[in-house]
Design a protein around this nucleic acid. Structure first.
Lengths: 222, 222
DNA sequence: ATGTATTATATGTGATCACACATAATGTTT
DNA sequence: AAACATTATGTGTGATCACATATAATACAT
């Protein structure tokens, strides 16, 4: 037998309706399609998604504990709108955590992953069909690097921060016509190929700050 | 009118059954009363708590997304047991985040809060009635300091890390008769009074490492 | 017009149930 | 006895409903 061998099989997916509903709601929110501060209702979403209240309820409560939604009032879900100081705090945390993981990833990332990064970057620069898919490519780009660092708990914290800041950040990116610079990605890929941790970290920080600028400069919008 | 004034009133609590059930389950887990790896069932907990499945279901799904529980198998909740590398990773993250918040808190913490810290420390050193209450006092001690830093998102991340590591850490503390050193607390209080950020940070790091030692030394138990 | 009372509507919550489906227990065959 | 088939039991999931109650809409009174 070969039952004890490591990572031959990966677990089969038991997709539940709750999970699918969660993914779909999250897709819309992270795509910047829902204005921060909007109220959402279980029944309303259930109608649009064609399910009963139950999976939607599970999904909303999950988004609640992930701090994407908040409850203001006894029975009222609302898409959280970050304050400026919260936004800055998250930016600072992201710089620290994502910077650290990039440094760790430099020594571990595979050539295949770097090649994948290059392909994703090509996609973002040339053949991007929609804003949503662009944002998705960008996210995938970043998390390939973070995942290579092999720090699952840190990775999870970073995901949590992306989830918290994504709804607001992406909403304003989409609203402003979607111009977001990704030229730091090229220097980042180059640094990874040269196994240069210092340059790689600097490139990530520059990328984060440039993206954050999109809404930090527009003080009037919030 | 005075409706626009800041923080005159705080929101009234709308306690739901789901919330109470969540708190109660969390209390047991964080009290180190449940062995990591244990399986829990919705119906079983509902019986013990005297409610229907519904609030328990909400609570378990919340604990799931907080990574305190995990699902192994299609319909099976299990209290997560951290691997050694995960435990070390969390320890490292806690050092970074909690160290940073302590530094920030030094300049901001009030004299009243420092007095409160001293009282809590007295309680831990002398009049502690049970292991559970001791752990609760210790947690309160730490989070008074972290809260004083006024970094809500970071505070939330730290809470998340405590939740993840608490079940396993506290379980072994309770199991080993509960000897956990808190002598670093005194030097920490002293550093806060002197507004010495460097010493305060050092005291926290020493405290964290000492607590972690309790289970890092027992390599056999996991 | 404005404040108050009344009614109507919409909402999340908690309970209950049928169902699919794992796993355990039991029975059956070789 | 052991391998296989069968049944029984326990589980989370998703659907539906009654209920309390927050909010909106309307009517009424001052």
């Amino acid at each position: 037998m070969n039952d004890a061998g490591p990572k031959l099989f990966q677990r089969v997916a038991h997709e539940t309706m709750s999970g699918q509903v969660y993914e779909e709601i999250r897709r819309v929110i992270m795509g910047g399609l829902l204005e921060p501060g909007s109220v959402v209702s279980i029944r309303g979403l259930a109608d649009q998604l064609g399910t009963s209240m139950m999976p939607v309820r599970d999904a909303l409560r999950r988004l609640l504990s992930e701090r994407i939604l908040e409850m203001d009032g006894p029975r009222r879900f609302r898409l959280k709108a970050l304050s400026k100081s919260e936004f800055k705090e998250i930016l600072s945390l992201r710089e620290s955590l994502e910077g650290a993981l990039v440094e760790q990833a430099v020594a571990k990332i595979s050539a295949a992953d770097i090649e994948k990064l290059s392909e994703l970057q090509d996609g973002m620069e040339h053949s991007v069909e929609s804003m949503e898919s662009f944002l998705k490519l960008n996210q995938e780009f970043h998390f390939i690097i973070y995942a290579a660092a092999n720090r699952p708990v840190t990775l999870n914290l970073i995901e949590s921060l992306w989830l918290q800041v994504g709804p607001m950040l992406n909403y304003y990116i989409v609203r402003n016509g979607g111009q977001i610079a990704v030229h730091h990605h090229r220097t980042l890929i180059d640094a990874l190929q040269r196994r240069d941790a210092f340059d790689a970290r600097a490139a990530i920080l520059a990328d984060l700050r440039d993206a954050a600028k999109v809404i930090l400069d527009e003080a009037d919008v919030w």
